[in-house]
Every structure is written in structure tokens, then in C-alpha cells.
Write a protein that binds this DNA or RNA. Sequence first.
DNA 1: TTCATTAATATTGATATCAATGTATTTGTC
DNA 2: GACAAATACATTGATATCAATATTAATGAA
Lengths: 148, 148
Amino acid sequence: MSNAVEIPFETTLLVRDTCLCLHVQRAARALARRFDDALRPFGLTNGQFSLMMSLNRPAPASMGSVTALLAMDQTTLTAALKPLERRGWVNVVPNPQDRRARLLSLTPSGTAALAAAVPIWKATHAALEERLPDGNGDRLRSDLANLL
Amino acid sequence: MSNAVEIPFETTLLVRDTCLCLHVQRAARALARRFDDALRPFGLTNGQFSLMMSLNRPAPASMGSVTALLAMDQTTLTAALKPLERRGWVNVVPNPQDRRARLLSLTPSGTAALAAAVPIWKATHAALEERLPDGNGDRLRSDLANLL
DNA sequence: TTCATTAATATTGATATCAATGTATTTGTC
DNA sequence: GACAAATACATTGATATCAATATTAATGAA
């Protein structure tokens, strides 16, 4: 008896043309490259830019609030903070009110590094948004939010 | 003199609410988790599913055609093939017509593993697409394609 | 108060991602 | 045919991602 299994080529085309996970991963890779290129002169990746920007708050952030904002696993955040701490851009200190928790904040040099990159982010983002219908990403943002 | 740099909190809110790179990375993480969960019983991640499905072609694929399809760096593809080769799901052989190139193909057991996962992909994807306006992701796919 | 449970984070191991760089092969030009 | 340039892919090193699990601290119930 034969165990040969076939998958119709139409299935491949269906996945290629419709899979939202694939479409989003693909766009995520392409956008990451684009923003990484733009931010490279400032020593930041797109993810580090987003993470550090999320720490620019009046009061120090908890890890949980950041993982929720970034839809990121907690262990990923722990790892992502390491290189930023090493560079002296981010402070991670125990919360005196709850010593399990951590308080995350930008250092002055971290704030300076981030501030230097903001104009490039603005320019890169504006150029990107122009590629969308009506030069406006609102409906894309809305659709993406529905997937979370 | 003071070197203190400030970034207006409004800038943080602007990035948080509008950055397309951030929005897409966030959705990419969330969707990856969702599909990884669904595909875990079959020993596949979302990326491995997409990659293997892209190899279900009448003729063996070149690496270049796959990286273009997946908008993926060539070195990422080289790395991603390794665990699939180890499991005997994918064959990578030199192209006799051009010995720099590789021919990528699914093995019978790779095809079987992939075929087993297709129904779960369909169900997971259908549930996802329902969350979008009119239960249709065409508009989202179109917007994402504009970003590539 | 004790102790089981819950909560917040860290560690480990595997895969994913890409820049920088290296190697082998092919191609085009002379 | 020789050789410079271009092409296709691999390797290395750093960061990103998450599952599984461990650690530490706070909480709640008896």
C-alpha cells in the first residue's frame, strides 16, 4: 500500500494569497528592515525604538504594562531590556512597593538617544503612510487592532 | 549647563497610536502566537507552515524564489531550513544546472506533516477573518501589500 | 500566623531575524 | 581561455521570540 500524500497546489495558492498570518509576518519583516535601516545611524532597531518610546512616561513603567502595550511575551521583554541596560539607556530597578516587580525608565542618555531618532522616525513613517489609500493608515491600524 | 533632553509625552502617544511598524510588529507577534498554538500539535510553527507550504510546488523551488515570496532575508531562510531538514521534512540539494543554487522540496513525510495541519490552518484562519469588517480580509491584505 | 495559591519576573533552550562577511560558481568581456 | 564582476548561498554574531520551567514575593484562607 502507498502512503503518498498530496496537497493540491490550489491549497498552496490559497495560503499564499489569503493567509493573514503570512501576510502580516511578511509585512512585519519588510517594515522592520525599513525602520532598522533608518534607525541604524542612531544605534536603534525598530523594536528598541518602540520599547524605549513606551518608557517615555511621567512615571516608571511596570513590565506588565509594557508587555501588554507591545503584545509581547514577558520573557521577550526581559531579554530585550538587556542590551539597553548594558548601554546605559534604560534603568531596571525593583519596585519598593512590590519587590517582585520592576520599574522601567529611560536614563538621560537613553532619552537623548531616543530624541535624536524621533525626526527620522517621523520622516520614515510619513513616507510609509503615503503609500496607503488617501495617504492614511487609519483603516489599516483599525484592521490590525481587530486581530489582537 | 544642562544636557537634559525631554521628549514630549505627546510624541510617545503619537508613536503608540500611529506607528505602522509598531502596529504590524504587534499584530505579527499576536498572530504568530495564535497560529503557533494551533499548529503545535503538528510540530509546526506558523513560519514553518508557511515555508513548507511554499515548497508544495510542481517543481523544486530555488531559495531566491522562496525568500522573495516570504519577504525574508536569505540568511534567515538558510537557518529556517535546518530544523526542517533535520526532521526529514525538507530536502535541500544542489541544482545540477547551477551548482551555486539549491533545490528545495518537501519529502513525503514533510508533505504528510503539512497535509495533516491544513484543516487546522483553515479553521484558525476562518475564525480570524471573521473578526474583520464584512468577515473579509481583502482590504487588510491590500493595505499590507502596499507596505512591501 | 502559617501555608497554599497567585503573581511578577528570570532562566534555559530552541528557533527566527538580519548585518557583515566569506566561499563557490557562473557570466561577461577581452 | 583568462579574469573581473556578478550571483547564490553559507557562516558568524547579535538580538528577538516564545515555551517550559524556576524563583521570589505577595495574597488569601484557615
